[in-house]
Design a binder for these strands. Structure first.
Lengths: 283, 283
DNA sequence: AGAATAGTGTCTTTCAGACAATATATG
DNA sequence: CATATATTGTCTGAAAGACACTATTCT
């Protein structure tokens, strides 16, 4: 049986009646009839320094997990989207305004927070080390970046909260002062979240622009700088000539980066500087 | 300044005191101090029939968007994870028990629901057409599957709620009875959600097992059946010999599928039947 | 000159796309 | 045999990996 246009009530049986009943409905709808979980954003602020992929963590001053290192996060306001909350939190906690930001995964296991039901939308941010001010937190928690060691795998699993391989979450973190933190010592399920994020970055490295987000100056970078970022994310070395060829084919010949002249006053042969073109100004 | 292990309170300043203060904290934490958004799951039940990719929709009987087609969804219970809520909803709405299920994206724009603040975790399910009973809904809403026509692009954008290309969301849906529904006529932001899901499936088709989720019998399928599923998802034809070669290299030679003998009693040359091996029984 | 860094060229293997040809069933 | 479907084979060009080699600067 065909459903003709005439069967659509809003267009057939009187627009005024429809508007009135919709207005009645909206006025009498009470959202607090349901018990709601808390919803937070967790922000994985990644950076690359000294050839290593690092993540920003805060030391918890309160229970639960008091004294453990945790991913920055916070509640989503009723008047902001999850993205807006993430942007606000990066500004508050890392002093960064325009980071490359990407939604990672939403973690919702019932007992992931011992206090109450918390659903957390995890975001991944790529921040240049030079722009990262990780003592700017409004809560004055102890903040530090940690190098990530030994995460295996090129790709995030379909369901990070369930599928655990035997060697998952056996990796470690190293603080700037040399402090060694096993992933299992992180607060909440933050070991799983970080591992998921690193694998996601690896999997998307070759078909997104995320690596460029780590560049100190996207308008004047060398291919060596870009390669070091790729190597830090992947966790292994890349062949120098092959990396050049791939990037130049994928970006230079498509106008997504352009040449900006040679470096000055460096040791060794000066490198070509490149500039990332914003999507609007591409040829 | 080094952070010595002695600075960790739980390990240095008395375990009993720590446990008591944590208990005090947990007892006095009141989650209702904050106003919370509603959290729902939206389930994109995809299927393939007659060589076309289809999605299950419900006709809304209530405001808002009364009379419009919408993705099935529902609130997350306080005692279930988002995954569990999605599994429950698929059972209720489509009568399916063990679908391939994958988290898609969390949509959180402030005004995406005119009633109140709703954050929706979207899931993508792959269901064989023969197992889909789309009149089993407990709410007895009108349910139907719709073929998806004309979605462009191989990959989901980084932020589906913001980045809109000019030709986005100009695609259409076709009901079983021939009813043509423009994507823009769907309820809420469900046009964006479906478009994001289709692009995500396309992008992940070659490195996940999602296509196998559409097979009527994963223990006895032909490569033609599998190819038709790929073609439906991608929206274009695939070269038959090249598809064989790729699948056999990626799956048969790695033991992820095995040969199960020839078809019987079909027109034309009988095809080899294959069986998908569960991850545990792979050689 | 020598050290340090950037960049080029080439060989091999793998793989995707296009398409011709062959094989095995039914009626 | 004709028809319908499945399967094999082959050619080409793109791209990745390995690695030897050249170029340009500074001290």
């Amino acid at each position: 049986m065909q459903i003709s246009q005439g069967d659509r009530p809003a267009e057939s049986s009187g627009i005024n009646n429809e508007l009135q009943s919709e207005q009645f409905f909206l006025e009498n709808y009470n959202p607090s009839d349901f018990e709601h979980p808390s919803v937070t954003v967790d922000i994985l602020v990644f950076t690359v320094t000294d050839g290593k992929l690092c993540v920003l963590l805060l030391k918890r001053r309160e229970h639960p997990f008091k004294g453990k290192w945790a991913i920055p996060g916070g509640f989503i306001g009723m008047d902001e989207s999850a993205d807006d909350a993430a942007i606000r939190r990066i500004r508050e906690e890392a002093g960064v305004e325009n980071a490359h930001l990407e939604q990672l995964y939403t973690f919702s296991a019932v007992n992931r927070d011992p206090r109450t039901r918390v659903i957390s939308i995890a975001f991944l941010a790529a921040v240049p080390f030079q722009k990262l001010h990780f003592h700017a937190g409004i809560d004055a928690e102890e903040a530090s970046i940690f190098a990530i060691n030994g995460i295996q795998g090129e790709r995030a699993s379909v369901n990070p909260e369930r599928a655990m391989f035997p060697d998952d979450c056996l990796w470690t973190l190293t603080g700037l002062n040399g402090e060694l933190v096993p992933a299992s010592e992180l607060a909440f399920d933050h070991d799983i979240i970080i591992q998921t994020a690193v694998r996601r970055m690896r999997g998307k490295l070759n078909y997104t622009d995320i690596a460029f987000g780590f560049l100190e100056d996207p308008d004047a970078f060398t291919l060596t700088e870009l390669r070091v970022i790729h190597e830090a994310i992947l966790g292994h070395h890349l062949d120098v000539p092959n990396f050049r060829r791939t990037i130049l084919r994928e970006y230079l010949s498509k106008g997504r980066i352009i040449e900006r002249g040679l470096e000055k006053g460096v040791v060794g042969r000066p490198a070509m500087l490149y500039s990332l073109q914003s999507s609007s100004e591409q040829g």
